[in-house]
Nucleic acid binder design. Structure first.
Lengths: 332, 332
DNA sequence: ATTTATGTTGAAAGCGCTTTCATTCTTACC
DNA sequence: GGTAAGAATGAAAGCGCTTTCAACATAAAT
């Protein structure tokens, strides 16, 4: 391994000068700079990043924690972060907590121990209080898909309420008046807000929220299938269904087929998230776009700006969902 | 930040002893050990991993490079690796090369510069020669989904030929004799092998490979749709279609619908990979399971065994695909 | 020509650990 | 009781870099 020492020797300058050249310091003469660059080239010198981290107490590394690594969501998020980071010579280390509090906390400590300069967290098992407390520590972090009043700066989240509203509003605009809803776990912030949006849309059309048209799922496919079955077997008829995510919507489509329903003729179905597979479904799923990649990139920029003092982008914390119209919804 | 120095002071022992305790060295008395452990506890000491890496020239970090981060494939792979690694206190840093040779090479250098103890690579833009040459360097690496004769030890790959065979064999067993095939880019090793498997199955049934029943796609959805259109418009009729991956199969399903074909009644369709979304499709796609997660874990174990001298698992390099029967195929 | 500000450089002290080496302390054995 | 082998410990030298500090050189201002 070539070290800075060998470079300095070959270039005939001191270690300090080599270091200055490496770090683009001001006050290095063209002459020295050229000698050093030439020596580096000749030796194919590659700085030891570990040593740099230790000496500068900056690891150029940001830690990413997601609750799960599979599913359609995280790939987009990670690729958004990774490309931004690598473009500026930084990198990410990735951990997955498995949706329970203690393992998420452990994962956060793990990342902090690795001297991450900052963290990007997509977690929901961990409490607000824990995060508020964490924010008093020395490792800055961005929170994706979460909104904590005390930590507004750090939060990058979707206007879920608007998203829920948009979905149901679209159905209403198409003439539907009996609209069922399959929710995610109400204990989760995003699920709850999407439901509120749904209710808001109903209210706008002077419609009452009807509990017989409601089913609480768990965001997984199966619960969409189960949900629509329950709903269909219930006494209350409906002509449209709004689901709190695409997985459940896909489950609901399958469930509808078990009842020989035609989508969208017999029942319009809306999803939420605009996962890539929604285009593969038949019919293609109308949904609400969740710009996760943009959000992840914005979180990255926030870190670039605040931690590394690069990037002068204006930071936005609230993201707007948009309606994606495809084949699974139709007017009545 | 608490350092080893403060621990040693509080415990009343030397730095060396603290280090020994941390690293579970032999020849530390129970007494010293307890004092050190108590001091660590009291100070909530967390070792600086960067410093450890530098001093020991072992980063406990393995680099992962995939060509793309999105898509249905990589999540499974990453979660397989991440969980294995974190269980033994190691971690991964992730880079994405964007399917072109120079950026993949750059990404590999990037990972090596970060002192990764080893690499796991899922790449296809980079040449065999480059990898053979890389293997002479000091950073060991595992190759996933690739087979290089000179590097058999490092390669973890699927028996793609068998997979291609299994898919078409199933169709043949169901009585189909006119079987179309939509391939991935023949320039890619896996696409090529799957095609060979397809041909082998035909041969076994004394059938000729018919070029009118062949379309070369690019592994993306759209090309499946285009492919089946071309095939359907061709002169040669067929009752079944085998696709070299699930994305193209999903595109083909869509294309078939454009022609008002019923799947599987009018045409059976096979996919390949068993991506999670195949269950969301209608009809659910019959496919070939690609045990990517197992393969990634095996690659990780290989590293654990060879680089860190842990794990005494027996390493297997060749993985066997299996037939997954769902709704998109039927007998004639 | 003298002062002042500014640019350029190298020596040396760390960053927080690991690891070698030498030293001291035990234990076992003849 | 003396010796050898082994166990337990600490001092000190790095790992490859960054960064302060002081020294010196140069240019601009008086």
């Amino acid at each position: 391994m070539t070290t800075i020492y060998q470079v300095s020797e070959l270039a005939g300058v001191s270690l300090s000068s080599v270091s200055r050249v490496m770090n683009n310091h001001q006050h290095v003469s063209e002459n020295t700079k050229n000698k050093v660059l030439a020596a580096m080239e000749q030796l194919d010198y590659r700085p030891n990043e570990t040593a740099r981290s230790l000496a500068s107490s900056c690891s150029n590394c940001i830690g990413i924690l997601v609750s799960e690594l599979h599913g359609p969501f995280y790939g987009d998020m990670l690729s958004g972060i990774e490309s931004e980071l690598r473009a500026v010579g930084k990198h990410s280390i990735i951990a997955a907590g498995h949706s329970d509090e203690s393992s998420e906390i452990e994962a956060i400590r793990f990342l902090i121990d690795r001297n991450c300069d900052a963290l990007i967290l997509l977690v929901d098992a961990v409490s607000d209080d824990y995060l508020i407390n964490l924010s008093k520590g020395s490792t800055p972090f961005a929170l994706i898909n979460r909104q904590i009043p005390e930590l507004t700066e750090n939060c990058f989240y979707l206007d879920n309420k608007l998203g829920g509203y948009l979905a149901t509003k679209h159905l209403l605009d198409q003439g539907h008046r009996e609209i069922a809803y399959i929710s995610g776990p109400i204990s989760k912030q995003d699920a709850n807000e999407r439901l509120i949006g749904h209710k808001n849309a109903l209210t706008e059309f002077n419609l009452e929220f009807n509990n017989d048209l409601f089913f609480e799922g768990d965001f997984l496919t199966k619960s969409g299938q189960i949900g629509i079955k329950k709903l269909l077997e219930g006494k209350q008829k409906f002509t449209a269904l709004s689901c709190a995510n695409d997985e459940m919507a896909s489950g609901a489509m399958r469930g509808a087929r078990d009842f020989n329903l035609d989508i969208p003729a017999d029942c319009s179905i809306m999803g939420f998230d605009n996962a890539f597979f929604t285009e593969y479904l038949y019919p293609q799923l109308s949904t609400i776009d969740y710009p996760i990649k943009n959000m992840a990139q914005m979180a990255t920029h926030w870190i670039l700006k605040n931690v590394y003092k690069k990037s002068n982008l204006t930071i936005e914390n609230l993201f707007t969902p948009t309606l994606i119209l495809r084949e699974s919804t139709t007017s009545i």
